[in-house]
């Protein structure tokens, strides 16, 4: 009886790392977060499963947050599914997408389509906003990481643009 009582009080002690924590700690947005903070974030995640060829979201749909791939394959596409769609990226386990929606209440710039049976973890803007209010230090860590990710993507886009311009100039 006594043992059960103490077990109940110190319920978080000696607890094994949850599956979701193992996945999100590899995501750059949750880098440099300690175990307690990762556990706090993992409580906010929404576990979803998608069938092959099922849309996770469509282009121009309002975006609420990002998705992390627990398992499966997700295609990021631009254009219509029927006909002239262009594949931007094929993402798999541990990859993430839609992170821009965490920062702005805008429509999705591309569509995400499950290529295979996929299990995704969703992390959404209202939860992030609540987290910033409740635990500002953790919230600011995530925001800082998020801005780093966006900066890296912007730099890569700039490099690609410059490469494209160089190729065009060479062709001309």
């Amino acid at each position: 009886m006594k043992n059960a009582y103490w077990k109940n009080i110190f319920t978080n002690w000696g607890k094994k790392e949850s599956e979701n924590v193992t996945i999100i700690k590899k995501i750059p947005i949750f880098a440099n977060l300690n175990h307690k903070e990762l556990e706090e974030v993992s409580k906010l995640l929404h576990d979803r499963t998608y069938k092959p060829d099922e849309y996770i979201f469509k282009r121009h749909a309002p975006g609420e947050g990002m998705f992390i791939i627990h398992s499966g394959i997700v295609n990021i596409i631009v254009g219509e599914a029927s006909g002239n769609s262009q594949l931007l990226a094929e993402l798999s386990n541990g990859d993430f997408f839609g992170e821009m929606a965490l920062m702005e209440d805008e429509v999705r710039s591309a569509a995400a389509l499950a290529k295979d049976h996929s299990r995704l973890l969703g992390f959404f803007r209202p939860d992030l906003e609540a987290l910033i209010e409740i635990n500002p230090s953790l919230g600011s860590k995530i925001l800082q990481n998020l801005s780093k990710v966006v900066c890296t993507r912007l730099r890569k886009t700039n490099d690609l643009l410059m490469e494209n311009q160089l190729v065009k100039k060479k062709k001309a």
Binding site: Y50, I56, A61, E64, G65, F124
Partner: peptide
């Protein structure tokens, strides 16, 4: 359902 997931979340929030 997946189709209404983000929309549903938006309404709840």
């Amino acid at each position: 359902p997946n189709k209404y997931f983000e929309m549903g979340l938006r309404v709840i929030f």
